[in-house]
Design a protein around this nucleic acid. Sequence first.
DNA 1: CAAATTTGACCAAG
DNA 2: CTTGGTCAAATTTG
Length: 327
Amino acid sequence: MSYIEQKSLILNELTQAKELLKQLESQLDAATSTTGNLLLPKILSSFENSLSMLSAINSEGGTQSQTTGSTESPRSVNGSRKRHCSSDLLIGNPSKKKKTIQGWTEQVRVCEQTGLEGHLDDGYGWRKYGQKDILGATYPRGYYRCTHRNAQGCLAMKQVQRSDEDPSMFSVTYRGRHTCIQAVHLLPGQSQNRHDHHDQKRMKLQGTVFNFQKSCHDKTEELSTAQVVINSSSFSFPSSASLPVPSIEKESDNNNFSSMTPDNHFMGSPFTSSPSTSVSNSSFSPNNFGEGQSMQNSEFDLSEFTSAFDPTDLYLDFDFLDSICSI
DNA sequence: CAAATTTGACCAAG
DNA sequence: CTTGGTCAAATTTG
């Protein structure tokens, strides 16, 4: 079956499911189910987002599956490139191109419009390892990697860049997946905090407006951009965490927001809220750190993070879509 | 003291 | 050459 055929099938199914959801919504309205009414718009918007993003996927290229198929970067894990003795290393490993694009798994824009202390935490510890001025951008781009890179070989990274036109908006680009276990959050004393933290986050995200827009660039590594507009109007966050805050904010001369952290979930909220992380990543998500995946089945919050980052996976990560995948 | 950040230099790709 | 990404020494932070 060709890629295009699969795509149209999935589109059909999604559209149908969306219509069904609309019907369900109207029925629920009549029945006045308050809890359901909160969820339905989210689910609906997820469908619409999925549809738009799916149609954005290049039909013949299959760019996403390609890029994410090899999520792990080619760079050596031990990766030390020494400045002085680098020659032997590179000669010994000539095949490796070291960096390249291919790992971009998700790009999320986080915009905190009103909230000041909106401390969106993605639950991970990040260590900044670089900052660069980007051509055409007013603000520098910060480079972060997982704190546990050395300890656990976690290759997750992210880039944070403040938007030029709207300085209150950050563009966060994730690369790689977390294979680490965030020890902080597993501590008995703090696990409860983390739980609460999550709950707050979830509540917060209920007031979130999601605008998924296609970024139909010609670059193959470019993925659909999820624009997350967060109306954190009434939520104040205890800035309990000593989370790594991008240095951008420090140099913010003007901003009223003093502690904004451009963080987010890997998957954006409409997806994280579905506990159906049965992980339907059939073909993708080649995780070489097999032991790190043991958490999938048990911990709900962890399963959120271990889910695939490939948008393709994201969209198909619904239970009722599993059948479609098997087409 | 360790851990995180800053910052200029290095490196590959275009 | 320029540009974006990374390294690592120096510095800051807790």
